[in-house]
Design a protein around this nucleic acid. Structure first.
Length: 932
RNA sequence: GCGGCAUUGGCGUAAUUGGUAGCCGCGCCAGACUUAGGAUCUGGUGAAGAAAUUCGUGUAGGUUCGAGUCCUAUAUGCCGCACCA
């Protein structure tokens, strides 16, 4: 009988679904394990063959863990809110909810065919009120919390209020606090809340009609759509992520993530140790604060620079310089972020003011220049041209003095930026190493009070408002211009219907079009905004939350997704603890993976989750690129536009330079050979296409060879491969195996359907072996092949080296091809279950026809116990034509004696069969290699 | 500029983690069965050489009895950050 994969796969998918095989319970005596995939955006294009890569890997691991006897939580859901879903809805002119529902349904259908072991009962969608209720809830909790710097954790804002009432703060006394109006008090508190409303310089994207977080902007363009982004000051909600900078940094040392992604996050957090110092303005009471990591170079400060946006600018500019400064500021304003990046010429203007160097007491000019960023440090710097290349360029341009501070440093051509050498021209620091000078200077600064030691972070607070429709509404209403949070028991605050959900270029949020969008305080419900004149009714916040809001705590919701009392119940959270294994792309390194860690730490501070870090181990699967195919249209003399030259001929003189490569749909190309009939039917313009075939012939049944290239997988390149097509043609098990077989999980690689036949052939051969099961005793050779396989596959799965397991299966298959013994085939079915679950179930049932069990009732540890121990102890490892095992020898043994001992050892006997080996290699480590 | 990762046959890759390269698959070659085959099966396939053998993991050094693997330079490619003081 043939390997009828579609029958087998449908049968088992139906079985699993009917028997709730993958239903996960929160109560179990088994050890728990939580395997999570980064949930997808249900985009309109559907899944392509690259998307399931990580899902297959996580499914293999989940199934393996189940076979190991774990209670495995392996859920799937959808990140349904946010820009792409909305952009798609706008493009197709439909309501985002409708398109989202359709897209989610298509994703589920596609995923279901691949045979994942998800518990669909735990599905979450970020756009469901049952879900975003908890996003709103968390936001409210953040509003009601502040970050206690001393205890390094979030605390209820009520504690802060209490402290203000009893002790005041460094800004006001307790009496002053009590005399403030409510609005004044609220304004003060806003500076402390973890979710806060403030005038912030934001990335405004007119085309998208919304502001964007820093990680959503790259090189001055929006990551989504690539539209220009400009800097603007707007009143926005932000999350005080920066308060958690140090903990986000330290936490990285305790989690099992790849070095590259940890490094990316360290970079993004950008901790730098240095000092803040006060510089006085000459002939005035003004002073300003700068941040530096090189306080050892204060003796070489020859000027100061302020960022154009700095508040200090207004204070220090002299009347004579005002016009020049105004002109410069005006010019700076016209420059977009992109211009600044592209054009790094030195620009700036003298403010007219002079500062006093606190150590040399010299008067030094204060400049304004856009090479100093307002958003970092204090927006003001001390310039040390001799030892900072940017200051150097500036000094050269404006002819400012350059004082070298390090012995032997030649600063006539360029600055000396390295933090090494012996100090000079630096008063009491002379003769010290730079490192020691920094330490000594810090002590001096603290003692004299001219500044203080300070750690700075590059990490900014996350801007949390979006002027868009398709997102979580803020649970916020405004009273007297100040925001208040809607009570938790009134959540969810549902997204209203609006007549027009498109964004505007001016920034008025689409929720302004909603009729019902005001808060009736005493009645605690949403009412028509037409009633706003009534004193008890207040306008609601019109912005929505950004895409990362819903994805920041979704992993907690899976633990307990039907709970209507809490985001996650105590018992569920205590049981599952945290995500043990998280799989997803590294593109989320500075977005989702920072926000989720922040969000989790906040909930941890509130005592609502058990673990400070959400994701214990993270694996980043590589991207699957596309492999495009080309046909070559003849465009030389007498071309009709309908003649296509086979790829192997295009370099020949008569065609060279006279062909135009055209992307051809990869689905009508097999092993780089064009399906002629399908090509003619593909597009009307190719109906009458004619060909010069690979052998030079122009008629008959010749082969047409296509060219190829590795490109991004996209519709326009005609290289998108749909998993549905692969499943239909080869089956889900083949797809799963082949995706793993392509190469190491973490590496990027192109999708090339060409190799899939080899994997499919393996499954078919394996299937044939199960046609006649017998109960004969296995031979020693057969057992050895099986044991080798058990050992290899177990090791591979533990190390996420799925690509190397498949060759191991193939080798075992070829070694055992004549074997149909139950004692061999049944364990192989179990080993194969994580990779090719449908075929494995079928095979398992052939071995156990009477049993009604699924394969998950067969436990892997037992398998290992039964076979693995034997395999490693009794038998050596055979690999790549070598036999290797460990033996003890006396220290003074001669080479001949050792070789003799090796050859007569019982371990060698099964391999030698009485013949002499090619070579015996004995290594001091007592490892023996026999080359057969 | 700073940081991370990679570089092995015609191609994707493997090497039990420092043990004497190229497993497995694709492709290619030959054979078998076929009216036919984008089917199936069998054998071969790093390079040079008639052969024994020799050379081979981007390049150049080093450590080691032994290096694809570790160290130091260097080149190329991919990714992240970037006027961050």
């Amino acid at each position: 009988m043939d390997y009828n994969f579609s029958e087998i796969e449908q049968k088992w998918q139906a079985y699993w679904s009917n028997h709730n095989t993958y239903k996960v319970d929160n109560h179990s005596t088994k050890p728990h394990f939580y395997v999570l995939d980064m949930f997808p955006y249900p985009s309109g294009a559907g899944l392509h063959v690259g998307h399931p890569l990580g899902y297959i890997a996580s499914d293999i691991y989940s199934r393996y863990k189940r076979l190991q006897g774990f209670n495995v939580l392996h859920p799937m859901g959808f990140d349904a809110y946010g820009l792409p879903a909305e952009q798609y809805a706008i493009q197709t002119g439909q309501h985002p909810l409708k398109t989202t529902n359709e897209n989610v349904a298509r994703y589920i259908a596609q995923l279901s065919k691949i045979g994942f072991s998800y518990d669909w009962d735990r599905m979450v969608r970020t756009c469901d009120p049952d879900f975003y209720r908890w996003t709103q809830w968390a936001f409210g909790r953040m509003f009601h919390s502040y970050y206690d710097a001393e205890r390094q954790q979030a605390r209820p804002i009520t504690e802060l209020i209490e402290r203000f009432e009893n002790e005041g703060s460094d800004r006001f006394s307790s009496n002053e606090w009590k005399q403030m109006t409510e609005k004044e008090q609220q304004t003060v508190l806003m500076d402390y809340r973890i979710a806060y409303l403030a005038d912030t310089k934001v990335n405004w994207c007119p085309k998208l009609g919304t502001v964007l977080a820093n990680d959503e902007v790259s090189e001055g363009l929006s990551v989504r759509g690539g539209y220009p982004v400009e800097q603007r000051v707007m009143r926005q909600w932000s999350l005080r992520v920066s308060a958690y900078a140090q903990r986000l940094l330290e936490g990285l040392d305790r989690i099992d993530w790849s070095d590259s992604i940890k490094e990316t996050q360290r970079n993004w957090i950008g901790r730098s140790e240095g000092a803040e110092m006060q510089f006085k303005i000459a002939d005035s009471n003004l002073e300003f604060t700068i941040f530096t990591t090189r306080c050892d170079t204060v003796f070489g400060v020859t000027f100061m620079v302020l960022a154009p946006e700095s508040d200090y600018v207004k204070q220090v500019v002299t009347p004579e310089q005002q016009p020049a400064v105004d002109e410069y500021l005006k010019w700076v304003k016209t420059r977009t972020e992109r211009d600044r990046i592209a054009d790094r010429r030195v620009t700036g203007v003298f403010s007219g003011a002079y500062a006093i160097n606190p150590l040399t007491q010299q008067k030094i000019p204060v400049y304004i220049s856009d090479y100093v960023l307002a958003g970092y440090g204090t927006g003001a710097i001390m310039a040390v041209p001799a030892h900072d290349s940017r200051d150097y360029a500036f000094a050269r341009h404006f002819n400012l003095p350059i004082i070298p501070l390090i012995e032997g440093a030649d600063v006539s051509e360029q600055s000396f930026d390295a933090k090494e050498g012996i100090m000079m021209n630096s008063g009491f620091l002379n003769g010290l190493e730079v490192k020691d000078a920094i330490r000594k200077m810090k002590e001096y600064i603290e003692e004299t009070g001219i500044g203080r030691v300070k750690v700075n972070y590059r990490l900014r607070d996350a801007i949390f408002s979006r002027q868009r429709y398709w997102g979580e509404p803020f649970p916020v209403y405004y009273k007297d211009g100040m925001p208040y949070i809607i009570p938790e028991d009134c959540l969810p605050l549902e997204l209203p219907e609006v007549k027009e959900f498109r964004p505007t270029e001016t920034g008025e949020p689409p929720l302004g079009h909603a009729d019902l969008w005001a808060w009736d305080e005493p009645n605690r419900k949403v009412v028509s905004k037409a009633l706003i004149d009534d004193k008890t009714i207040f306008p609601l916040e019109l912005c929505t939350m950004p895409g990362f809001a819903g994805s920041s705590a979704y992993y907690l919701r899976y633990m307990d997704n039907h709970n209507d009392q809490a985001l996650v119940g105590r018992q569920a959270c205590d049981y599952w603890q945290q995500v043990d294994l998280y799989l997803g792309g590294s593109e989320h390194a500075t977005g989702h993976l920072i926000y989720a860690r922040f969000w989790n730490k906040f909930l941890f501070d509130l005592g609502l989750v058990n673990k400070d870090e959400p994701f214990k181990k993270l694996i980043n699967q590589g991207m699957i690129q596309g492999r495009s195919n080309f046909v070559y249209r003849y465009i030389g003399e007498g071309a009709t536009g309908n003649l296509f030259i086979s790829q192997n001929l295009i370099e020949q003189p008569e065609y060279k330079g006279k062909v135009q490569p055209i992307h051809v749909n990869v689905n009508i190309v097999h092993n780089d050979l064009l399906d002629i009939e399908a090509f003619r039917e593909w597009l009307p313009e190719y109906k009458d296409a004619s060909f010069v075939f690979a052998d030079g012939s122009t008629d008959g049944q010749g082969e047409y060879r296509c060219g190829w290239a590795i490109e991004k997988m996209s519709k326009s390149m005609w290289n998108v491969v749909n998993p549905d097509d692969i499943v239909a043609r080869y089956g889900a098990d083949t797809l799963r195996l082949y995706e793993m077989f392509l190469g190491p999980l973490e590496m990027s690689k192109p999708w090339d359907t060409n190799g899939i036949d080899g994997v499919h052939r393996f499954l078919r051969k394996l299937w044939n072996q199960y046609e006649q099961i017998c109960d004969d005793e296995p031979t020693a050779d057969e057992l050895r092949s099986l044991h080798k396989l058990i050992k290899k596959v177990t090791w591979d799965i533990e190390h996420f080296s799925f690509n190397t397991s498949i060759p191991a299966f193939m080798i075992a298959q070829s070694e055992l091809q004549k074997c149909s013994k139950r004692a061999i085939l049944e364990p192989i079915a179990i080993l194969l279950a994580p990779f090719a679950p449908h075929l494995a179930e079928e095979m398992f049932h052939r071995c156990q026809p009477a049993s009604g069990d699924t394969i998950f009732d067969a436990a892997w540890p037992e398998l290992c116990e039964r076979y693995l121990e034997e395999s490693t102890v009794k038998y050596p490892v055979q690999f790549n034509g070598k036999v290797r095992f460990t033996m003890e020898f006396p220290k003074d043994a001669t080479r001949e004696a050792i070789e003799q001992a090796v050859l007569t050892a019982p371990q060698s006997a099964p391999f030698l069969n009485g013949q002499s080996p090619k070579k015996v290699i004995v290594v001091p480590g007592r490892i023996v290699n026999i080359v057969l």
